[in-house]
Write a protein that binds this DNA or RNA. Structure first.
Length: 268
DNA sequence: ACCCAGGGTAACT
DNA sequence: AGTTACCATGGG
């Protein structure tokens, strides 16, 4: 089934390939497909939104995934009160996705000291090797499928030193030491400390899990680009106009810095 | 050969 | 509490 979804702020290419998710590909001009958890979707860019090609029962899932109910027009207008943020938001229609908690946890463990292209490859091999086969490809592995494995069992992923971290995360989730649904309900600070009990999860990965997988819109992952942005533009912190959506503002600044500013303000 | 990539850990001051 | 080498892999 095809569903037309109206949405004034959603550029699929920018949203799917800005380093927040790693399971989509471009099929052709304005056409994409990919997975979240165990679900598959095909997407087409429209002038006033997107077309969702999926089972009827999965339509609410994808509307939630793209956070269609959040009004970005209000958000971006507020961000525009700050000059740097206004520049970052101009020409960008990125939505912060509401991804699956476990998938987000594993994905951003893999992301550490890594680049987006190789992260995507490792996750693809992880799904092919350990995910359930579904019609269009492979689901993201459940924690149970990864728990109890040995590092060498993941050698085909070529994930390097991250393999042991993946296994520790799966073990803690299946063992109940890490309850992602409970962590979702905690404050940013409590949740961050709880996530950091997993090996290979530090402040940055924890904040990515909070923002992209547990929908803490106030969590701000401090990667190298955001550290540069903060040092140069915001030595005293992000402006008031971000409200409780600092994480979403961060995603615009992140993309702005690594695409538009990398050869100018932040060259070498 | 060197440097970097959506960093974290352990071992140092 | 704040620095620093090291961790695997692949692309520039």
């Amino acid at each position: 089934m095809i569903f037309e979804i109206k949405c004034d702020c959603l550029d699929l290419k920018q949203t799917l390939f800005c380093g927040q998710c790693f399971r989509f590909r471009e099929l052709g001009e304005g056409e994409y497909d990919g997975f979240a958890g165990e679900k598959y979707v095909k997407l087409i860019q429209r002038e006033d939104g997107i077309a969702l090609c999926c089972d009827e029962e999965d339509k609410p899932f994808w509307e939630e995934y793209f956070d269609i109910s959040l009004d970005y027009a209000v958000l971006l207008e507020s961000f525009g009160k700050d000059g740097t943020l206004k520049a970052a938001c101009t020409g960008r229609k990125i939505r912060v996705l509401k991804q699956q908690p476990f998938e987000t946890l594993i994905s951003f463990i893999i992301s550490q000291n890594n680049n987006i292209k190789r992260i995507t490859g490792i996750i693809d091999r992880l799904c092919r090797g350990f995910g359930e086969k579904i019609e269009a490809g492979y689901a993201f592995p459940k924690a149970e499928a990864l728990a109890g494995l040995k590092e060498e069992d993941l050698s085909e992923l070529r994930a390097g030193f991250r393999a042991k971290y993946i296994i520790d995360a799966a073990n803690k989730v299946t063992g109940g030491e890490t309850d992602l649904e409970k962590i979702r309900l905690m404050s940013d600070e409590e949740a961050r400390e709880e996530l950091k009990k997993i090996k290979g999860v530090g402040d940055k990965v924890a904040d990515c899990v909070l923002l992209f997988g547990l929908y803490h819109t106030s969590a701000v992952p401090k990667d190298v680009w955001i550290k540069r942005v903060n040092a140069y533009y915001y030595p005293d912190g992000l402006p008031e106009c971000v409200g409780r959506y600092a994480g979403i503002a961060q995603q615009y600044l992140f993309d702005y810095a690594r695409t538009d500013l990398k050869d100018t303000v932040f060259k070498k």
